[in-house]
Nucleic acid binder design. Structure first.
Length: 419
RNA sequence: GUGAGCGUAGCUCAACUGGUAGAGCGCCGGACUGUGGCUCCGGUGGUUGAGGGUUCAAGCCCCUUCGCUCACCCCA
């Protein structure tokens, strides 16, 4: 007997009724994003490796050790996208979107790939729902993007989520702070972990959100990033906060929040959720005012976010989940001479009228058919026997109440179509 | 990449110091041949993740490997 095959490590099948939940979440995203003027973009899953090296940053963990990179048959280095902002920026440049009405507002959804050790809330193939606003540097755009995000989450039924917020300043501020941090930590290099000692050279900011207690203490004594901020970034951040206050967005400034992707400038944010274990970020994002230029395009600023759909669905409010997973509404059973064919005929009449219907085609007894209707979660059972067929009628039984009556077929179709 | 724990039916789990692989749920059917949910009865279900070793005998012990889970790391 041949060995059984399984899905590859870190990937999984999504099955019904779970897939209905995913579809419902995506439907809400499309609906909310459309209200804010965002249109869908679909970029390839496969990109040139160079895009992520330049866009996301060579020193990042994502690029340095987590990419699915391989050579194609012509020897070109290709990578399965580990995130989508770089792809959107590439598409922006490639299609000359700077000449589209500004700002350009795009959303995307789809699978992303990172070669990491799987864990609660962490998969090698995971899914993101993201949005990008390109072409406006102002704090009003930061605020609007966050308002859209918060509205999306609240329409899914989430409450009590807090946006963690910080600013990284412009390029100069970041460079200055990098040096300040390095100067502060260098004397204590002995106390740092191996990883952090390496980061001291490559990317000292990353040490800020280390979870090691010893390093946290060292970091607590470090000068705040705020001290190095340029005046414009400071103003920008103050404006963003003022706007969020005005719209009642629940947020908290988190001075040690830095992000692992190199393209971020100024505003960065994150939303975490309880109940996810160590991988508790369900949203991450920020401003990236230099990314498009770094990819060879015009100097166009941008801001965006990515939602971890797998994690989001892990902690989705139960009410939304139940609503989404509801299935067929009418179960059609036929007995006596009528049989499966008549059940099929009536089911087709219902479907024609837009009603979800399942027909009992297996020739089971009525009792068995009713049992199936019940287990399948049907709202009504439609029973067709010799009498009903002869009279052009059908017996409709509402399963929850047990009430039933015989009505003309056409009338039944109309009534079920309304319900 | 590092560390720890765990792999027995579709699911949740039993099986003494090694001695004939079980239950509940699910699924299918019957009791009830035109009426579901409750109840009762029956049926369906397994190379005990895979491979090797020790032994008269391995689900249990040893080795290898794959996978899952959690944490580090990183991020969505």
């Amino acid at each position: 007997m041949p060995a059984k095959l399984r899905s590859v490590k870190g990937t999984r099948d999504l099955l019904p009724p779970e897939t209905a939940v995913w579809a419902a979440v995506e439907e809400v995203a499309r609906d909310v994003f459309a209200r804010y003027g965002y249109a869908e973009i679909r970029t390839p899953i496969l990109e040139e490796t160079e895009l992520f090296v330049r866009g996301v940053g060579e020193a990042t963990d994502v690029v340095g050790k987590e990419m699915y990179t391989f050579a194609d048959k012509k020897g070109r280095s290709l990578t399965l996208r580990p995130e989508s902002t770089a792809s959107v920026a590439r598409a922006f440049v490639e299609h000359g979107m700077q000449s589209w009405p500004s700002p350009v507002k795009l959303f995307y959804l789809g699978p992303q790939f990172r070669y990491e050790r799987p864990q609660a809330g962490r998969y090698r193939q995971f899914h993101q729902i993201g949005a990008e606003l390109l072409g406006d540097p102002g704090p009003w755009s930061d605020a609007e993007l966050l308002l859209m995000l918060v509205r999306f989450l609240s329409e899914l039924g989430f409450s009590g989520l807090t946006v963690l917020l910080n600013t990284l300043g412009d390029e100069g501020a970041r460079a200055a702070y990098r040096e300040a941090l390095r100067a502060h930590l260098e004397p204590h290099a002995e106390a740092l972990s191996e990883d952090s000692r390496r980061r001291l050279e490559t990317n000292p900011l990353r040490i800020l959100d280390s979870k090691l207690p010893a390093e946290r203490e060292l970091v607590a004594g470090a000068p705040p990033l705020e001290a190095c901020l340029d005046a414009e970034s400071r103003e920008h951040f103050a404006a963003v906060r003022r706007l969020l206050d005005r719209f009642g967005v629940d947020y908290r400034v988190e001075p040690r929040l830095v992000r692992g992707l190199d393209y971020y400038t100024r505003t960065v944010f994150e939303i975490t959720a309880a109940g996810l274990g160590a991988q508790d970020a369900i949203v991450g994002g920020g401003r990236y005012d230099r990314l498009v230029a770094d990819l060879g395009g015009p100097a166009v600023p941008g801001i965006g976010f990515a939602i971890g759909e797998d994690r989001l669905i892990d902690v989705l409010p139960a009410a939304f989940r139940e609503r989404a997973a509801r299935r067929e509404t009418v179960h059609v059973a036929a007995v006596g001479g009528a049989g499966p064919e008549e059940a099929l005929v009536f089911a087709e009449e219902l479907r024609q009228a837009g009603v979800a219907a399942a027909a009992e085609l297996t020739g089971r007894s009525l009792g068995a058919a009713m049992k199936r209707a019940d287990r399948a979660g049907a709202r009504w059972a439609a029973i067709l026997g010799d009498e009903e067929v002869a009279a052009g009628e059908v017996t409709l039984r509402e399963l929850a109440t047990g009430e039933q009556r015989r009505v003309a077929r056409r009338e039944a179709v109309e009534e079920l179509g309304r319900a």
